[in-house]
Structure formats: C-alpha cells, structure tokens
C-alpha cells in the first residue's frame, strides 16, 4: 500500500460571479479509497468534481496527482497533451447522463474500443475481444455489441459508459450521480456492479451523489457540502450514524426509511 496520497487537494476555490461554488476545499485520497460527496443541489459538489477532474480550472488551490511513475504533479500545471492523456488513460469520468459520456451513434463496442485505441491499441481482433469482455463484465448482452447505445435502456447505457471508462484500467474514477435518473431495481444492479468493480480493481473513486443510501453503500469516506463548503467529513458510517453538524443531522433525518 502506497502511503503517498493518489490525489491531494489543497485550498481549492471556485467562484461563479458572486457565488462561491467551492470555498477552500482540501482532502487526500489514497489508493483504493472511495470518497463520497453529498449535499443538495447547488451545494457545489458537481463543481468540485469538475475541478478535481480538470474539466474546469479553479480560481485558487492545487490538485496534485501521483502519476504511474510515482512523480506527483499539479494537474493544472500539466501540458494540454499530458492532461488529455491522463484523462483518457488513468482517469475515468462517469456522467449522470450516459449521453454525456457516450457517443450515441456509434456501436456499444466502438464506444468501449475508442478509449483503447486512444491509448494505442491497434489490433482489431484484440480490441474487439477486450470490448466484448468488458461489456460482459458490466452485464450487457454481448450479442448487442454492434448496436448503438441510443437503442439501449438508460441502465444499459450507464453500464456501457462504465465499461468505456474502465477498459483502460484507470486508477481513479470520478462519478457524478451515477445512479441518478434510473429505476430503483436498475439502480440496485448498478450499485452492486460498481461496488464489486471498485473492490476487485482496487479503484480509487470520487462519487458525487445526493442519495445517502448510495453513499453508504459505495463510499468509505464522506464529505458533506453546503454552500460551497465542506461542513463535515469522516468515515461514512460515522457521518451518517453520528452526524455532528446541524446540516448533516438535517440531511440524515430527512431521508425516508423504506
């Protein structure tokens, strides 16, 4: 186990006009750790995720990432090609809406293969085999490998998006409400799949969700955000079972128990 954090975030702030979307956020993420970020709409959690994953630049602060060669780099100081390579190989990003993470008009197999080709895979048979293998792992009927994702259900599309992200064996995956907008039964299947994959692959992940049950099931640690600030952070079951901050208590007490 490497004791140097995989991701180290310090003093990260991002404003949109007069609104502080993220205000002085800091945390470490280690290998194999899954961090959940919870909070209601507008709390800044998605902005934080987009800053962490270098989709947008923060106004202040640093995000340091431990590269595969062990060197630690500020992701905003990387050159554009370096950053793009990182995003295509070592990182994954699972969007809430699969349409944002997939190309709707090319086949499911090609969606998965595209990421492999981006890292230099050229042998057609091998690429197809690995794409097939990953579609099977995310429980997509491999007979449909040549169909376009727009002909798939929402849950299936989401699983294709996950396969596309994991096929290059990333070490860090960002997820924005990965189960949002899906039926409960489909959610359960996806959650179980994500839980298994993160554990088996030893993935580190940052998962944004407003669903505390999803956070409990998937994440080791939790950060609770409100108004751009982290109001409470800690071990997931500690934060949910013994919440200290008034806002966390309100969140936990507002959930319906089925």
């Amino acid at each position: 186990m490497n004791d140097t954090p995989l991701l180290q975030v310090e003093g990260l702030s991002k404003r949109f006009g007069r609104i502080a979307a993220c205000d002085d956020i800091g945390f470490d993420l280690h290998d194999g750790e899954v961090l959940g970020i919870v909070g209601e709409s507008g709390s800044g959690k998605t902005t934080l995720l987009r800053c962490l994953s270098a989709l947008i630049a923060p106004d202040r602060g640093t995000v340091r990432y431990r590269m595969r060669d062990g060197s630690r780099r500020d992701v905003f100081a990387l050159s554009e090609p370096e950053r793009r390579l990182l995003m295509r190989t070592d990182w994954g990003f699972v969007h809430q809406n699969p349409r944002d993470g997939l190309r709707a008009h090319v086949s499911a197999g090609a969606n998965v293969a595209e990421r492999l080709m981006a890292v230099g895979a050229r042998h057609y048979g091998e690429i197809r085999e690995r794409a097939t293998d990953w579609l099977a792992r995310v429980e997509v009927d491999t007979a449909r490998i040549d169909d376009a994702p727009r002909t798939f259900s929402g849950g299936m599309q989401q699983r294709v998006q996950i396969a596309r992200n994991l096929v290059t064996h990333p070490r860090l995956v960002f997820m924005d409400e990965p189960t949002g907008g899906l039926d409960v039964s489909v959610q359960a299947r996806l959650l179980d799949l994500l839980r298994g994959l993160t554990a088996d692959l030893g993935l580190s992940a940052v998962i944004v969700t407003h669903d505390l049950a999803v956070a409990r099931l998937l994440s080791h640690r939790l950060m609770v955000m409100r108004g751009g600030q982290v109001v409470e952070a800690g071990l997931t079951d500690q934060v949910l079972d013994d919440p200290q901050h008034p806002y966390t208590q309100l969140l936990v007490n507002s959930v319906l128990q089925p």
């Binding site: 800690g234 071990l235 500690q238 079972d241 013994d242 200290q244």
Partner: peptide, 9 residues
C-alpha cells in the same frame, strides 16, 4: 459498543 467500533465519535 458503537464507540469501540468507531461508529460513534
């Protein structure tokens, strides 16, 4: 018991 497990602070 929950304190010993680290579930409560």
């Amino acid at each position: 018991m929950r304190l010993v497990y680290g579930n409560y602070r």
